[in-house]
Every structure is written in C-alpha cells, then in structure tokens.
C-alpha cells in the first residue's frame, strides 16, 4: 500500500464521509460539547486519541482472534468491551503519568465510552477494509480512524465557533438555543454534500 492510499483514506474519512454530517454518528457530543470552542477542541482531541488506539486494537482482535477461531459474531460486544476498557486504561495512565494531558482531555474521556462514533469506526473498518484487505489492512484502518477523528474535530470546532457567534447575534426568541443550532447543523450538512464525488 502506498502513501497515496493512506492520504485518500484520511481525506475521504475526514471530509467526504464525515462521521457527523454524513454518517450521523457522535451527535451527542456534537450538540452537547459544542457551546464553547475550548471544550470542542478538548473533546475532539480526546476522541482522536481514543479512536485511533481503539481502531488499532479492535482490528487486531478481529483479525488475529475472532476470525481464526470463527467467532466473528461476537465482534460487536467484544468491541464495546474493548473500547470501554481502553477508555478506563487511557484515563488511568493519563492520571498517573501525564497530568497536563489529563487536565485537558481527562474530563471528556468518560463521555467517549458511550460515543457511538468510536464503535461505528471500528465496525466500519471491519466491514469495509477487512473484507478487501484482510489482516494487512490494519494501517489503512488506523489512518481511516485518524481521518474520521480529524473530521469529527473539524466539524465540532466549526459548529462551536458558529454557536459562540450566535450567542451575541440578534436571533428571534423562538429560535434561540437548540432550534437555531439544529438549523446551523442542517446547513453544514448540506454544505458538506457538495464534496460528494470529489474522489
């Protein structure tokens, strides 16, 4: 596999098949943690961190444990448990060895355990990449996860910036808060449809 394949995978996952605006995964943090730009960036960084590690681990478990023993049917429950354990492990390591990183990411880590985008990427890697490349597609899966996470961070940051602007804008009373936010999310989703077919 060449670097072009990895670059295309990142671009595709980040912008064309964006996890929030195209696949509608991770909507909970998208709406819940997008009031302030600083929170959005922290959440994006935490998701990137966990999504890349989780994709690597789940792909390895699927390739080297579940497939050889013919027990692929437990993949979803195995991935849920792996992601939940991984989040606990990452949080513990950050608490112990990297206090500055825990200070910036730590409070967002519990939310990631229930973030369906992480599980969605792990399952997507299996259904899209494993069926075509087998166990040799592990790095492609990792780069796809990286692209997906960067796309998540980009959108949540852009959305939070718009919401911060809306706080000081003259919005009609009936549209204040959630309604105008949902309209903005819809317009962003339509805008990203313009990238369809670029690759």
């Amino acid at each position: 596999m060449t670097w072009t394949v990895f670059a295309v995978a990142i671009f595709n996952a980040m912008l064309i098949n964006n996890v929030i605006l195209k696949q509608f995964l991770g909507i909970c943090p998208f709406l819940g943690v997008s009031k302030k730009s600083s929170s959005a960036v922290g959440m994006g960084a935490a998701v990137t961190f966990v999504m890349v590690i989780a994709s690597f681990v789940t792909y390895a478990i699927y390739s080297y444990v579940l497939v050889p023993y013919g027990i692929e049917y437990i993949s979803t429950i195995a991935f849920i448990l792996v992601i939940a354990s991984l989040v606990q492990l990452v949080e513990m390591i950050l608490k112990k060895f990297s206090k500055p990183l825990y200070k910036s990411l730590g409070i967002y880590l519990p939310l990631i355990t229930t973030n369906c985008a992480i599980l969605g990427v792990a399952e997507g890697n299996i259904s899209n990449i494993y069926t075509n490349y087998g166990s040799s597609g592990m790095w492609l899966a990792v780069f796809t996860a990286l692209g997906t996470a960067l796309g998540f961070t980009l959108i949540i940051f852009a959305f939070s910036s718009v919401r911060e602007k809306l706080e000081s804008s003259n919005v009609p009373d009936a549209w204040k808060g959630v309604p105008i936010s949902l309209v903005v999310a819809g317009i962003m989703s339509i805008a990203f449809l313009g990238l369809q077919g670029i690759l």
């Binding site: 354990s85 606990q88 492990l89 949080e91 513990m92 825990y102 200070k103």
Partner: peptide
C-alpha cells in the same frame, strides 16, 4: 479490573 484500577487512581490535585 480497568474500571477498579481507574477508580483507585487518585485524580491529580490541579484537575
């Protein structure tokens, strides 16, 4: 195990 170990690990004071 990871949940228990995580709970037992103290949160840094500055956080």
């Amino acid at each position: 195990i990871t949940y228990t170990l995580n709970k037992k690990t103290p949160i840094p004071e500055e956080c």
